[in-house]
Amino acid sequence: MKQCEECRIWTSHAACPLCLGSMEGLSDGTGEERYPSYADRKFSRRRTPRITMLAGITAVLICLLINIVIMPQFLWIFHVAGAVMYMLVSFNHTILSKSHLGSKIVMQVMSLTILLLLIDSQSGAEFLSWSVNYVVPFLIISGMVMITSIVFFRRIKWSSYFSFMIMMLILGFLPAALYAAGVTTVIWPSALAAAYAVSVIIIMMIFAQQAVLTQLGRRFHI
């Protein structure tokens, strides 16, 4: 250990940690390793999500410009914006992030629902038809089936899926609400989604009432 002539501190480093002046010839540089070497480690900032976000926004803006200039009577930009939004969610959240599987399922269902509603609203004579009548209810049913299956087969970790299951069950009533509002015209897919949600709630209340109430108490405490 040698003394830095400028800073007057003692160090074993090859360069003074304060003034960064070379200590060669002064310090032997053979002191004990007190920190790991970071030379072979990658610590760069994760830029991919931000880059994809920027690329997505740029693509939408360019398409918006082209759409307005070339074909202002038909705004196909909504199709593009919906698709870009869905791709961003899929890439940044579903693929790249280490988020909870339940959250990935919920985000997929929600973003795909928005994409389908956008496409359906912009195509065909009716404002919304095939999406709200068939695809969205079955999409939500698929999401509910996935989460409830995970909870059923991985019972030890069921509580970590609880919030996502509640979200999916609430979404399960969305098609029925749309039917009640007169947006949906075909009843059976919406009724099926609501029936699945109600069945799950009844099963939970029969077989795990105390655990469900405990989880609800924790998640809604104020």
Binding site: I9, W10, Y38
Partner: peptide, 17 residues
Amino acid sequence: IDIEVYSNEWGKHDETM
């Protein structure tokens, strides 16, 4: 007093990281 200074030398390898 004598002060012994040591560091994790973070930033030293910026060029290689």
